[in-house]
Amino acid sequence: MTAARELKITPIKNGTVIDHIGNGLALEVLRIIGIDEIDKDSTVSVALHVRSQKIGWKDIVKVENMELSPRKANAIALIAPTATISIIRDFRVREKRAVDLPDRIVGILKCPNPSCISNQREPVESEFDVVRRRPVVLRCIYCERLVDDFHPHAA
């Protein structure tokens, strides 16, 4: 089993492994990470539809030579609340944590209300309070619009 698993997903020397991503959400996670920001000489591995004891089926994303920023981890928490993030240095897991949705989300989402002041030409970042966690519901701190259907972008 271990050998078969290794064939599917090769280990990385340095980088980030995002495991336990809900089935089918790996590409959304990649979009948040931002392909443009990944070192051109690094490997990105994506495993879709992998068996998981914890959540049935899962996706996995491994990115070489990149340590995920807290802001991006927050964005991943929005769409993949079951994900875990491992920071790998020299083939070893140096840090492992579940994604954690903070009480306030800054700069990750655009408010869906086109008339919201945060979508005008003003020097402010979008900000949302988390009003419910499962499923996630956010409230824009500016226009107070409730948001439960979102597609985070890397800010």
Partner: peptide
């Protein structure tokens, strides 16, 4: 008084 929602919150900042 402003035409955009959330303008007063921004103003307060």
């Amino acid at each position: 008084r402003h035409p955009n929602e959330g303008a007063a919150r921004l103003a307060a900042q």
